[in-house]
Nucleic acid binder design. Structure first.
Lengths: 221, 221
DNA sequence: ACCTGAACACCGTTCAAGT
DNA sequence: ACCTGAACACCGTTCAAGT
């Protein structure tokens, strides 16, 4: 009921912090029961999340149902509730793992100093257009609308992307306000592409390049 | 399964054509039974759709359940299935009515010849930022991901908006390719704003104006 | 023509009982 | 520590029967 101010929503998250504890949102039940054997419990937990992500990738969001997951893993529904408090917690765990991966990709793409700034942005756009990325992204953003935990994860990712792009804009020589404005436009453009592709023809990478050009080198025209 | 190339998705739809038949997707059952009394059947049908839209506006997408709707209208679940084949058809009917309204608004905002082109675009942006519009839009776009009929309706709307903006860009003096590119960027930006607001701070109308400026008058800088 | 009432399948959740 | 099996509430859908 109260707005969820989870620490993950408050800025750049260090991907390693998430990767270190690979099951940050696990059930209170499981957490309490874990101390004695640790290993088996954790493996089992990861198997659930991996299975769910596999189902998601293969058959879409509508297929992620507890009975289907249990059939896949060869257990009964009751077992699920030993590992998770409810289905929302599964979703949060899936979102955590996926966002840790994405977060690492964004960080890597933005950090390579050896390539020019504009190329870094183009790489991020290419990553977005890549099928597989946008499909999973769209699914998680859809979930975010009905689950505050997932929403917080998505917010943290958007924030990280925004800050990465903003820094790139500053590196290009724009002043603070112009950098903020242009970075915001680019992030909204990317989000719009994720949701809008299907309504309008998907831009080719040349066209994507041209649109990025509009926002990065306006004085050339 | 096959990509839905419904005629409505292929270009500008005349809003009046939609408005004339106010229940274009009604149940095959209802359509067959309507000839003798017409009036009462239609009123009842509209009451269902209105009730569902009211529920949607008041309590969000998760609250649009058949039992809740029936409670509100004071009937039993069985009654619902006399008017509709299934819940997807209700959604399609809701989407139709809402998109007819939005379509008319867009058409009106784009058509006023007396005001300058840039102002027309700014008006469309203002309509988008208006709360109420974006909330309902986000909900329908969410539904579109799991319902092909709703998806077709959303596609038709995006297409109409794109063509309106593209025409505005041509009026501003851009050549065909630049107009297409910039209009595409603006539409994706708008869609991104609908889904992304919440992740990033909502732009003020001044900021929105500045972003539009980036895409409409690049040579000024 | 329009609605009721009862049924059925399916999903999320709980929990006592097993090993 | 981890899982089974059976139960319950809830939602979508069907359909014979009422008026």
């Amino acid at each position: 009921m109260t707005p969820d101010r989870s620490p993950a929503a408050d800025g750049i998250q260090t991907p390693d912090a998430d990767a270190a504890d690979s099951s940050p949102r696990r059930s209170r039940k499981a957490a309490a029961q874990q101390r004695s054997r640790g290993r088996t419990a954790r493996l089992s937990y990861e198997a659930w999340v991996d299975g769910a992500l596999a189902l998601l990738a293969r058959e879409g969001v509508a297929a992620v149902k507890i009975p289907a997951l249990c059939r896949e893993l060869g257990v009964t529904k009751g077992s699920f509730y030993w590992h998770f408090d409810d289905v929302d917690q599964l979703m949060a765990a899936m979102a955590d793992r996926w966002s840790a991966r994405q977060s690492e990709i964004i960080r890597a793409l933005g950090a390579i100093e050896s390539i020019p700034v504009e190329q870094r942005i183009a790489n991020m756009a290419a990553n977005l257009i890549d099928q597989g990325t946008w499909a999973t992204e769209a699914t998680f953003r859809e979930w975010a609308r009905s689950d505050e935990k997932v929403a917080a994860t998505v917010r943290a990712m958007d924030q990280q992307i925004f800050e990465t792009v903003q820094k790139a804009m500053l590196d290009l020589g724009f002043d603070a306000e112009q950098a903020r404005l242009r970075a915001g436009a680019m992030v909204y453009l990317g989000i719009g592409f994720i949701h809008g592709r299907g309504s309008l023809p998907t831009p080719t990478s040349d066209e994507a390049q041209a649109i990025i050009g509009l926002l990065t080198i306006p004085m050339r025209n």
